[in-house]
């Protein structure tokens, strides 16, 4: 499934539309230094950490989008950076686990092959 379809299905708030790209899994982490080394390529990254470096880490790891959980607030600098790097940033009101589960369930529903991603 691609990012635009994902947020349409889940009704997330779009903070920066960015690139419509493949989402093949979910990754959760709030420490940027951990996400930087352990993040999964093409995953939707669920986090409450919202600052310019979140966008930088997403780009570096090549994750497909940032999903801010718990209605995390964002600043202008982060959105500017997201525009610059064409990164999709969306926001969910639910906590991290519920948000990740909802994305996971949606990906499954549309027959995305998560087991390949999990290997």
């Amino acid at each position: 499934m691609k990012t635009y379809k994902l947020f349409e299905n889940l009704g997330y708030e779009i903070l920066n539309k960015g690139e419509d790209r493949l989402v093949s899994g979910v990754y959760c982490c709030d420490l940027l230094s951990v996400a930087m080394s352990k993040g999964k390529e093409n995953a939707a990254w669920v986090t409450v950490m919202s600052n310019v470096n979140t966008v930088a880490v997403c780009t570096l790891v090549d994750m497909s989008c940032i999903v801010l959980a718990d209605g995390s607030s964002v600043d202008e600098a982060m959105l500017e950076k997201a525009k610059e790097h064409n990164v999709c940033v969306m926001r969910s009101k639910l906590p991290v686990f519920e948000t990740a589960k909802e994305i996971f369930d949606t990906l499954n529903l549309f027959g995305d092959r998560l087991e390949e991603y999990c290997d």
Binding site: S33, M36, S37, A56, T59, L60, H85
Partner: peptide, 11 residues
Amino acid sequence: LIKIKNDPKIF
């Protein structure tokens, strides 16, 4: 420090 190469274009 966690060893990750800097990408000057990003950071």
